[in-house]
Amino acid sequence: MSNLEIQIGGMKWKNPVTVASGTFGYEYDELFDLSQLGALVTKTITLNPKKGNEPCRLAETRAGLLNSIGLQNPGVEEFITEKLIKYDKYKTNLVVSISGSTIDEFCQIADKLNPYDNIDAYEINISCPNVEKEGLAFGVEAEVVRELIAKLRATTDKDIIVKLTPNVTKIEEIARAAAESGADIISLINTVLGLAVDIETKASRIKNGIAGYSGPAIKPIALQNVFRVAQAVDIPIIGMGGICNTEDALEFLMVGASAVAMGTANFSNPLITLDIIKGLEMYLGKNNTNLREIIGSFKLQ
């Protein structure tokens, strides 16, 4: 059996496979033992409860899925009392995704979550395209990222993962700002801005209008972003965006990701993460290689 163990920031993962925020939760527990994953990532939590956007929130297009959920969540207080305990039994790393509309809000959420030892890392969602103030507004300006991450760094010893949006001109600048201000890990990509038109009504198929696009259609976009960020920073990367099988996961590792996350693919096959863990194991065994040799092995020319 090949060794899939990997060190990411301050965390030891039993394999480089996790899930994308908002697509997975303890609900999958009925289908398999979630402790088998390298890490679990929660849906994004905000300071106060969020009702989310008006339906319709989903539209499937060729090779992809548009969504505009709007960070629906019960808020950090209810998350702590109702949800956090449900993750206690899993013997794996727990990453809590958080977002806020001000730097202070991000820090307040971290303050409230800091006492809980079963949380290993925060994923800082500065890249959700579907909310007005939160998320994307932070993720597109390097100086704002710098200030946010520096302030968060001062509030917590847990690993800080910064999740980047592909909806920027120079993703390297944002990544560098995150790394230089104390982020431990970078994850990318969040969804790509997208639109689908209902030709009967001449309106967006999603009520909120422009939405976030995910699924296999965005994989090449994600790969080139991961590659560019890997060239720009020295901290580890969790790569995601349209990964559907082991070969996709290997592409992300080769361009420089230390781990991979599945999002939309969980909806097509809720056991996809396990399939990919097995697939990676088989690939490494068959090719008599290891993760260290694979990660970053891609050469552009």
Partner: peptide
Amino acid sequence: ETIMACGMGVCCGCIIKYAENGEVIY
């Protein structure tokens, strides 16, 4: 019936508007 993704309450994609205690909830 609505458009649906995960089917198990994770993704919050398949919302129905519902009136409870005088307010519209999802």
